[in-house]
Design a binder for these strands. Structure first.
Lengths: 206, 206
DNA sequence: ATCAAAACCGACCAAGAGGTCGGTTTAATG
DNA sequence: CATTAAACCGACCTCTTGGTCGGTTTTGAT
């Protein structure tokens, strides 16, 4: 029993620190020793728990990344409110520097997607699947909004979801260096709201 | 004289092949030997012309990437037409699989930006500067459109530029695996047009 | 033809990284 | 206290890669 706890504890420490460094420096630019040194652990410990560096990362994705994406981008969608407001709010919150000293979890998806795209198709698929979950939920919320009369009937919900996701992912590239961070976010949210006007019922005179 | 020509020729071959492979596999995932083998050249030849792998890439950016971005995204903007149409058209064309067998040059900016962000600040800056040129031109064209009565007075041109750029960059992450390529592009352009409606003079009742 | 400089070759080096493995420590159990 | 398995250590291996350098070939001017 205690054994299992210790195992989980060590694995958890490794995953947390791993995500932190992978997020800061990139997966392939972070060596195992980088992680191990910071935790005062050894290669032996690492390979006792994970069978490879990539297996390690898959573990991180399934245990940490998925949860963060759900908490930040999926769950906030399911409110009994106007979907357009809900979406804007969730994105605004996801772009926050994050409460406390957490890192900006919402951002890392794009980085990792790009990094693994040309390197590891399996991991890339895991990440893509997470994106898909978000997309599916976006679409479903949008469609519900159509029924509830918040969204104009002419709107292509799938297209809107694609557009929202792409703009959100693209913000990552723009926010990478921290210059103008605040301004960029403000501009993004403002324009997102403008875009939403075209989708709302009131403006549908097209 | 001929000497200079031979030098330029070899350098040009290296740059072309380098960009091709860096674009396909990523900079850090492509070894010099990968490039050299395909051209039947040696390490000696390479280091005779370039002082390092990263110097090589900077050369590529300045000679090839800049040109492509200009040709695809900047120059098309400067037409005496409605800026909104011009922008949509240029993006639509930039998302084309590219005429002939060229690679999709329009896309690589986002990949390279992400890759170098956490690795090489100098190169990252070069790439960011290219983005800035695009942004500046976008803004100037938008502002001109405001004067010409194509764009509503309430529009924040800087914000619009940011939003357009971020959505364009984000498309890269979505288009990375080739599934649904056509559909994604179609959705993107359609929604971009919807967004433009809010910006145009006619719809400005806000 | 000569010769010097440019262009090029390719064996070699050093550093870093992922991964291995035999041995040691820790800790729960009887 | 003894036992045993899990947890952990760290030296070592192997492979890759950017970069070096002494030597060779090409080339163009005289």
């Amino acid at each position: 029993m205690k054994t299992t706890l210790k195992k989980r504890e060590t694995m958890h420490m490794l995953c947390l620190k791993g995500l932190e460094l992978f997020h800061n420096k990139g997966f392939y630019n972070t060596s195992l020793d980088d992680i191990l040194n910071e935790l005062s652990l050894s290669k032996g410990a690492f390979y006792h728990h994970f069978k490879s560096k990539e297996d390690f990362f898959i573990n991180i994705v399934q245990n940490l990344v998925v949860q963060k994406v759900y908490a930040l981008l999926v769950e906030p969608l399911h409110t009994q409110d106007n979907p357009l407001h809900v979406i804007v709010d969730s994105l605004e919150r996801a772009l926050e520097p994050s409460k406390g000293n957490e890192m900006a979890y919402g951002f890392m998806l794009n980085d990792f997607l790009t990094e693994f795209n040309k390197r590891n198709k399996e991991i890339h698929r895991y990440l893509k699947d997470i994106l898909n979950v978000w997309e599916v939920n976006l679409i479903s919320v949008l469609k519900k909004g159509k029924l509830d009369g918040h969204i104009a009937r002419h709107v292509d919900c799938e297209g809107v979801a694609t557009y929202i996701i792409s703009s959100y992912l693209g913000m990552r590239s723009l926010l990478m260096d921290n210059s103008n961070e605040g301004q960029l976010k403000y501009q993004y949210i403002q324009q997102l709201k403008q875009y939403c006007k075209v989708l709302s019922e009131q403006e549908s005179l097209a």
